[in-house]
Design a protein around this nucleic acid. Structure first.
Lengths: 194, 194
DNA sequence: GCCAGGCTAGGACGAATGTCCTAGTGTGCC
DNA sequence: GGCACACTAGGACATTCGTCCTAGCCTGGC
């Protein structure tokens, strides 16, 4: 892995664990094991690193969503796969929260130009989830449902991070899965009644 | 209002709008209109201000919850009163997110000693909500429901902040209100069936 | 074998940070 | 009137920040 990739990788991790603002050039350089001078050769400003990190997150998210789509033919299973990330990543979420939500909020508070760029990760999830609901037969409602599932995950992340409670995460996942089943059942029955 | 109160007030606002770490002593002093030297007379360290701000938030939250409790005799109305804050404060939430969630997460990332103190505000809401559900006849489930409502508000705040979408907030509030009604109806009917 | 150029190291720069000190002002009590 | 003390102003301090410069290394092409 080249130096540039190592820098982006370390910055990605540190931005998540410590936040963007509190993470210094020196901290990233030290994490990679290079000098600050070398650092400057690859990235001229801190904002450049941020953009590269966001770009990397966009790319890895796109890749993940494609894999999820390939992993199951059932759109409902795909949505459930998304829901599960709060369980899969519960350790990190308890320690640092959701990588997407916490970064976008920090950039919002900093009034940072790259805020909109960071929101792009949310948009990927939103669009992907909407497509799943569309595949399940929803039209105008699909985006609303996508946003609800997204909001669910953000709520879990925030409280899991605050209370360090894994049981709560499992309970809420069970709740949303029940909701998904019911929601789909009422939709298909309404569809059949047409 | 004394100087100390003005400092806490300005710090409270700036910590919310800019975050704790990026807000400097100088910025707070300038907002109040005093010198940094004067500042030091009232607060020796930045952590002291943070503690005072958290203390102020705890106090104002307690006061608000008592007022809500006094404002309505119906526990369900009280819960709805809580749910409404995402509408009442939607402007600030769109710009800066939830004051409680964003601070606790920032302190978590900073591994700050006051993190647990800040979580206290969440605990106030959680306890208060649990009591409302207990008044509605729930026992062991009351805390779970309280956490769900809390998670709902956090999810809304995160996405409202990311997408700047007021309509989404209204839709989700309608959704949770429907859920509350149904949840209560199924509970009382089950209760009557005992 | 050597030379060009991608890459690296280490330090310098001004600005800003949290912290601290000291001199001074005002007001209330004797 | 004078003294004590709560309060204020302004600057000094070391450190760290993002940024930038320059000197050197190392490898590939001729």
């Amino acid at each position: 892995m080249g130096t540039r990739e190592q820098i982006v990788d370390a910055a990605n991790r540190l931005f998540y664990q410590q936040g963007f603002e509190p993470t210094s050039f020196a901290a990233i350089a030290e994490a990679v094991g290079i000098s600050r001078g070398n650092f400057y050769y690859h990235f001229k400003t801190k904002d450049e690193i941020l953009q590269a990190v966001i770009e990397a997150r966009l790319a890895s998210t796109r890749k993940m969503l494609v894999e999820w789509a390939d992993g199951s033919a059932d759109p409902l299973d795909r949505v459930r796969r998304f829901v599960e990330i709060v369980i899969t990543n519960r350790g990190d979420i308890e320690s640092y929260g959701c990588p997407v939500g916490t970064l976008t909020n920090e950039l919002a508070k900093l009034d940072h130009p790259s805020r909109a760029h960071a929101v792009g990760v949310f948009e990927l999830f939103r669009t992907w989830l909407r497509e799943q609901f569309e595949d399940l037969g929803f039209d105008a409602e699909a985006d609303d449902l996508a946003m609800h599932v997204l909001a669910f995950s953000q709520g879990i992340a925030a409280l899991s991070n605050a209370f360090h409670d894994s049981d709560f995460v499992y309970r809420e996942v069970a709740r949303i899965n029940t909701w998904l089943t019911e929601r789909l059942a009422s939709h298909t029955s309404a569809d059949g009644a047409r």
